[in-house]
Structure formats: structure tokens, C-alpha cells
């Protein structure tokens, strides 16, 4: 498994654990109200699990298993893939944590912009690799 995939998948596993922890706290609080602050974790719960876990896991596995090139670098230009990895993690942290900490909405916007940038970078890297195996 290439280094980028290892980093992305391990980061995704961390987000899975954090997202499940936040979700568990909210569900626990729904069943047996202990701490009203638990509901403030909702934006982080959603962001961590949808983007940090699911999307980032797909990014990591896609980089690993999609067809490689027989000429030149095996996985093509990796720059956009690394950019996607950096942007998705910056984005998830900003967009997920900002609302929990009552930060200005512009911080969450910055996070969502980073996530959108990650999507564009991931597509730019992946597009040429969606091809017949022999090429």
C-alpha cells in the first residue's frame, strides 16, 4: 500500500473513531440526558464521518487500487493526490470543529472551501487512472 494511502486510511480510521465517539455521546445523552453540551458535537460528528471517514477512506483506497500506468510514474502525477489529502484534512478540521467552538462562520466556510478543493484535486489526479488496465 503506498504511503499516501496509508496516511489517508489511518486518518480516516481516526475520524471514524472520533465521529463514533461524538455520535455515541449524543445518543447517550438522548437516552439518558446527562450533558446538554453533547448536542454541540453534531456538526463535528457529521463532518468527521461523512468527509473525514467515508470520503477520505475512498480517496486512500482509490489511490492504492485504481489502474496504474505502464510508462512514467506508476500512479501518474501524485501532486494533486497529496494536495487532496492535505486539503481534506484541513477542511474537515475547520468545518467540523468551528461550529462546535462557536467560531465565526467564515472559518467553517474556509473548511468547506478546502474540502471542495480536495474534491477537485482528487478528481484531477484520479480521472486519467480510470482507464483500461493495458494502457
Amino acid at each position: 500500500m503506498p504511503r499516501l494511502s496509508r496516511l489517508a486510511i489511518r486518518a480516516a480510521l481516526v475520524y471514524l473513531l472520533l465521529g463514533f465517539t461524538f455520535g455515541g455521546l449524543m445518543l447517550l445523552n438522548k437516552g439518558t440526558p446527562l450533558a446538554s453540551w453533547a448536542w454541540r458535537l453534531l456538526p463535528a460528528h457529521v463532518e468527521f464521518l461523512l468527509i473525514g471517514w467515508t470520503a477520505q477512506f475512498i480517496l486512500g483506497v482509490g489511490f492504492w487500487i485504481l489502474p496504474r500506468f505502464s510508462r512514467g510514474p506508476a500512479r501518474g502525477n501524485e501532486l494533486f493526490a497529496w494536495l487532496a489529502l492535505g486539503l481534506v484534512n484541513a477542511g474537515v478540521c475547520l468545518a467540523g470543529i468551528a461550529p462546535v467552538l462557536n467560531a465565526p462562520p467564515s472559518i467553517a466556510l474556509l473548511g468547506r472551501l478546502a474540502e471542495a478543493g480536495a474534491a477537485i484535486a482528487f478528481v484531477l489526479h484520479t480521472w486519467p487512472r480510470v482507464k483500461p488496465l493495458a494502457q
Partner: peptide, 14 residues
């Protein structure tokens, strides 16, 4: 309490 147990089980699964 059922929800509390459910929360704990899913967290442990993760």
C-alpha cells in the same frame, strides 16, 4: 436506557 446501550455498543464496534 436502550439508547444508552445502543450508543455504547456502536462505539465499541468502532
Amino acid at each position: 436506557w436502550l439508547l444508552a446501550v445502543s450508543a455504547m455498543l456502536q462505539w465499541l464496534a468502532g
